[in-house]
């Protein structure tokens, strides 16, 4: 579905060096790495916002930067940190932006589009503030509306840049459960950048570790999320054992003085 082949990207210095990563339909891939490892840049390349200096980002076998933006937005949605909105847009109007690529450029909203958006808002538990102003919502509530906007795009690839950054624990879990069930029911490929290692361990099918612009490991969660790999990736000692309920890897911090 989404194929990143030997992606290189540089501003003044190299940010990404030879990253190859595939996200297949219906699977959830977590991209982990320290600050400045190049995660957000890789996501921007995957979304077609940045053109790689070398390598290709393919969507359905076609290079994403060669598509029209409408075509790309029908296939792929990106949820990133959004800025404030300085106009009195309601949450519903905000999420309706997700239908842009599916409708004619001129005209009012069709009832079926509004229905799709309301369903998307309901899926993120955001329907109850559909008619409130977007910029009056809390940052966690806004984040859910932004995710609804991506769901309303009905994409085949969903890119999430720290979707749980401002969410409380309950919404972190429900958000990832939503992403999981979405991947199962509607079959999009999901690539998720997160700092919540344990959420990744619990919800991802595969994990990719990015360090200094290179992939240092990529594969099934249990194979990749070892103490050795994670400690190297984050440059701090980490303890990995198994979650007593799920049996997935569980990562704990270690105070450096204790070692």
């Amino acid at each position: 579905m989404l194929e990143l082949r030997d992606i290189h990207f540089r501003y003044a210095h190299p940010v990404l060096s030879g990253v190859t990563l595939e996200v297949r339909a219906g699977e959830v891939v977590a991209l982990l790495g320290a600050n400045g490892a190049g995660k957000s840049t890789l996501l921007a390349v995957a979304a077609g916002l940045l053109r790689p200096s070398l390598g290709e980002a393919l969507l359905d076998g076609r290079e994403i930067t060669s598509m029209s933006r409408r075509e790309a937005a029908r296939l792929l949605a990106l949820v990133a940190q959004s800025g404030e909105v300085r106009f009195p847009l309601t949450a519903l109007e905000y999420a309706l932006a997700g239908r842009f690529a599916h409708v004619a450029a001129i005209g009012f909203d069709r009832p079926e589009d509004i229905e799709i958006v309301r369903e998307a808002l309901a899926a993120t538990d955001a329907l109850q503030f559909a008619s409130r102003r977007f910029n009056e919502l809390s940052s966690g509530e806004r984040q859910r509306v932004v995710l609804s906007r991506a769901l309303a795009q009905q994409p085949r690839v969903l890119l999430l840049d720290e979707p749980t950054a401002n969410a409380d624990l309950a919404h972190q879990v429900s958000l990832l459960e939503l992403v999981r069930s979405l991947a199962r029911d509607r079959n999009p490929g999901v690539l998720i950048v997160t700092h919540e290692i344990n959420l990744a361990a619990e919800f991802a099918d595969r994990v990719a570790l990015l360090k200094g612009g290179r992939l240092i490991a990529c594969g099934p969660t249990r194979d990749v999320m070892t103490a050795e790999n994670l400690s190297e990736c984050f440059e701090t000692p980490l303890l990995v054992d198994l979650h007593p309920h799920s049996g997935n890897p569980r990562v704990s911090l270690i105070r450096r003085g204790i070692l």
Partner: peptide, 14 residues
């Protein structure tokens, strides 16, 4: 109005 980058990602030829 939401943001140029958002608009571009959502399918607008900004």
């Amino acid at each position: 109005m939401i943001g140029e980058r958002d608009a571009f990602a959502l399918g607008v030829e900004t």
